[in-house]
Write a protein that binds this DNA or RNA. Structure first.
Lengths: 409, 409
DNA sequence: CTCTTTCCTTAACAAAGTTCATATAATAGC
DNA sequence: GCTATTATATGAACTTTGTTAAGGAAAGAG
C-alpha cells in the first residue's frame, strides 16, 4: 500500500506542546532542553523531540552551551553537571513581513521569530483610498524588502475579518477593504502565504506574547475605532463567527450620533479619536472658544490644563459601564487598555476607577487595570507561527510551504 | 514493581468522547453503536469501547435490537442487514438527587441519567432563613427519598459559587449560604458526593442539554436576581475565577438604587422580580392608584391591559443595551431568555427587538432571540454526569465512588 | 440454502507521551 | 591527574487512545 493516510489522534497535542515551548522561550529568552521540559511540565524525551522539530523548522536556533554563557564573566556560580545546549527563538533570519494596514498609515517591517515586543516599523506610507493605489504604494515599498527566507506576509486589518477565509467582512473606517481580495493582491508582489489578522486580535495576541503567564484579560484599544478582545485561559478567544470584540458598537443611552456601521448611538462615536475631537470641538464652541482648531494636540493641552471636562467625563463613564458589563459577563478581572485615549493625562486612571466601581469582582478583590503600548507586530508574528509554521494539519503545512521558502538546514 | 502510576496522555480524550456519546443519546433517544460511531465521527471499534464502558458504569442501558423496535407496528421499512443493539441513557434507576435551593422555595427530585428536559420536582418546601432550619426541613423531606443506587446530590444555588471548592462565595438574596458548609451539612443526611452548581450555570447546561447542537448562545435568567451564562463552542464557559455570568450587577446610567451586592445602580435593581415590583408600585402611586397592592399578578394585569408603561420600557431598554454589549464582545448571535420577566406579555418581543438594534451582528444577519422554560434539573444532571460519573481522573472517580453506591452489574 | 448487507468485535498499527536506563560532559575532591 | 558527583540529552520499552483492516454474526432477498 502506498501513502495511505494513517491513523492520528484527533487533538493536535503535539502542536499544543510546540506552542508551549515557543511561548516559554519568548519569556525565558534562552533555555536548555532540560529547562524547557521542567517549565512546560513535559518529560525530557518529549521536550527533546519537540525542540528537534522546531530546530528543523527553523523556529529555534542554538545558542551555545550554558557553560559558555556562564563563564562570560558574570559572577553567577556555574552549576554542577553537564551544561545544557542553550536554545532560543531564531533572531537571525527575517521570517515574516508584517504589515499594519491602518486607516491613515500603512506600516511595514520584516520580522524574525524572536520579535521585539514593542512595535518598530521599517517603512511606512499614507494609506491611499483605493485598493489599486494601496497595492502600487506597497509595490514600491517592496523594493526595500529582501524576500529571501520569508515564510509569509502578515497583515493587521481594522474591522471585522474572517481570518479563515482571509476576507474583510466589514470595515467602517476603511470601506474599500470589503471589496478587495487582499491576499490575491499581495501575492502578485510576493508569492507567499498571506494571513489577515483582525487588528484588535493582533493587539491581544501581542499582549499575550508579552506576558504569557499573566492572568486572563480583556484588551481594549481606543483608536480610529474601539475594539475589544479577550484572552481566556491563556488563549485568544476565537469564535467561529468572526464577530467578537466589537466593543465599540455597543449602544450608549442618550447618544444620538450616527456611526459608520449604520447604527445610532454606538460607543465608538463618543470615544474614537474622531468622536472625541467632535465632542471637544462642540464643547469648545459652547464655551465660546472658536479660535484654536480642535486637534489632538489642543485636546491634550486642554485636558492637561483643565482636567476632565464634563463631556469627557461622561464619555468615559459610558465606556466604563460597557467595560464593566463585559468583565462581569466574562468573569475576567484584568483589563489592558491601549490607544490614544488612555495616553491623555488622567483618562486611564479615571476609567480604571470607574470600571472598578462597576465590575462585580471589585467587591471581592482587585480589578487589575493597566495600559500598554501597541504590540501589533508581536501579535502578528504569534499568529504567523501559529497558522503558517505550525498548522493543524501537517500536510497542509507542507502544501503551504511548497516551493515557497522554508529552508530546513 | 507495584502499582506504579503509568503513563497517560494528558488531555482526557476518552472523556470527551464519552460525553459526546452521552450528548448524542440525549438527542437521539436511542441508537446503536454504529449510529453513534457515525454521528460522533468515531470509528466503530472506538464507539464500541466507549459504550461498553458507559454500560459498565450504568449510564447506558440496552434497549433491545433495532428490529424489535421497527417491527413494533410503525410502517418504517426495516433496514437490511444485521440489526443493531439499541442503547439508551438509563431511565430505570434514580441516580441523582437534585435540589433547587431557591430564594423562596427549595425543591427536590430524584432523577435518572435520562432526565426530563423540563423541570418536574417531586417535593418542595419554603426555604427557611437559616442553615439549621434548612437542614431540618431537608431531613424530613429525606424520608421520602430512597437513597438506593444514588450516585450523588446535586444542588443548584443562586449567587456566586466556587464549584471546585463547593463553597458559596456570595449570594445577595440568600446571605446565610455564604457561611454554611452545604456539602458537609447534606452529607449528614446522605453520605454521597455533593455537588454545588451555580444556578445560572445549571440553567445554561440544561438548555445545552435540550439543544445540544444548537448554535452557541447567551442565556439570561430574570428571576430573584438576573444572571447570564455563555455557551461557547458547545461548552458552558467556565472561568477559573468563579465569577462569570454576573449579568445583573452591571451598572446602568442614571439608576441610583442600592443593590444587595453593595453597589449602586445595578441592572438587577431594575429588572429582578423585586425591582420590577418596586418600580411598578412607585409608578402606580404617581398615577394616583394606591388601591391595589402591587403584586406580580397586578403587574401582569397592568401590562396586559396597558402595554409597556414608560418605566418598564426604560428598564427593558437598559437591559437590552447590556445584553447587546455582551453579545458584541462575545461574538454570539443567539440569546435564550428565561424567567418571569419574559413571561409578561410583549416583554420578550420588545427586548428582542431592542437587542437586535444594538447588537452588531444584527447589521449582517439575524440575531436569534428565544425564550425557554427553566431546565435546572437537566442541567444539574449534566453537571453530575460530568463531575461525578466521568471525572477527569479515574482514580478520583474510584475514590469518590468508594463504598458509596455505583453498582456495576 | 446461499448471497448480500449491516453490525459488532478482534487484530494490527500509529501517534504521542511516560518511565527507566545509559551515554556524555562538565565541576569537585583527593 | 584521576575519580566521584551531578545534570543533560537520548534511546528503549510501555501505556493510552484512536485508526484501518479483516472476520464472524444476524437479518432479509433470491
Amino acid at each position: 500500500m502506498l501513502g495511505v493516510k494513517t491513523a492520528a489522534l484527533p487533538a493536535s497535542l503535539r502542536r499544543t506542546n510546540q506552542r508551549t515551548v515557543i511561548s516559554l522561550l519568548l519569556r525565558l529568552g534562552t533555555a536548555s532542553r532540560a529547562d524547557l521540559a521542567k517549565a512546560a511540565g513535559l518529560s525530557q524525551p518529549t521536550a527533546g523531540k519537540i525542540t528537534t522539530e522546531l530546530l528543523r523548522l527553523g523556529v529555534l536556533q542554538e545558542a551555545g552551551s550554558s557553560s559558555d554563557l556562564n563563564s562570560n564573566g558574570d559572577g553567577t556560580a556555574t552549576r554542577l553537571g553537564r551544561p545544557g545546549q542553550m536554545l532560543r527563538l531564531d533572531a537571525m533570519h527575517p521570517r515574516f513581513l508584517a504589515i499594519e494596514l491602518g486607516v491613515t498609515e500603512t506600516k511595514l517591517a520584516a520580522l524574525p521569530v524572536a520579535v521585539k515586543l514593542k512595535d518598530d516599523w521599517d517603512f511606512e506610507f499614507p494609506t491611499p483610498k483605493s485598493p489599486e493605489a494601496w497595492l502600487a504604494a506597497l509595490r514600491s515599498a517592496a523594493a526595500e524588502v529582501n524576500p529571501q527566507g520569508l515564510w509569509g506576509i502578515l497583515i493587521s486589518v481594522p474591522g471585522i475579518v474572517d481570518e479563515q477565509e482571509s476576507r474583510v467582512l466589514f470595515s467602517p473606517n476603511l470601506h474599500w477593504l470589503e471589496k478587495a481580495n487582499l491576499p490575491a493582491m499581495v501575492k502578485t508582489i510576493w508569492n507567499l502565504p498571506v494571513l489577515l489578522v483582525q487588528e484588535i486580535r493582533a493587539l491581544a495576541l501581542g499582549q499575550l506574547t508579552a506576558e504569557p503567564d499573566g492572568e486572563d484579560f480583556l484588551l481594549i484599544d481606543f483608536g480610529q475605532g474601539v475594539g475589544g478582545a479577550v484572552v481566556l485561559e491563556g488563549e485568544l478567544f476565537s469564535h467561529p463567527i468572526p464577530l467578537s470584540g466589537e466593543f465599540g458598537h455597543t449602544p450608549v443611552a442618550g447618544n444620538r450620533r450616527i456611526c459608520g456601521c449604520g447604527a445610532i448611538g454606538c460607543l465608538e462615536t463618543l470615544v474614537s479619536e474622531r468622536g472625541l475631537l467632535e465632542s471637544f470641538s462642540a464643547d469648545a464652541q459652547s464655551r465660546g472658544r472658536t479660535g484654536s482648531r480642535p486637534s489632538w494636540k489642543t485636546l491634550a493641552a486642554r485636558v492637561t490644563e483643565a482636567g476632565l471636562d464634563p463631556w469627557l467625563r461622561e464619555a468615559l463613564e459610558s465606556t466604563a459601564r460597557v467595560v464593566a458589563g463585559a468583565l462581569n459577563v466574562l468573569g475576567v478581572r484584568r483589563l489592558v487598555m491601549t490607544g490614544k485615549l488612555v495616553e491623555l493625562p488622567s483618562c486611564a486612571s479615571f476609567l480604571s476607577s470607574e470600571i472598578k466601581k462597576g465590575a462585580m469582582w471589585g467587591r471581592f478583590g482587585e480589578i487589575g487595570c493597566q495600559t500598554a503600548p501597541h504590540r501589533r507586530a508581536a501579535g502578528l508574528v504569534a499568529a504567523g507561527i501559529d497558522r503558517i509554521v505550525l498548522p493543524a494539519d501537517e500536510d497542509a503545512a507542507a502544501a503551504q510551504r511548497q516551493g515557497v521558502g522554508i529552508n530546513p538546514p
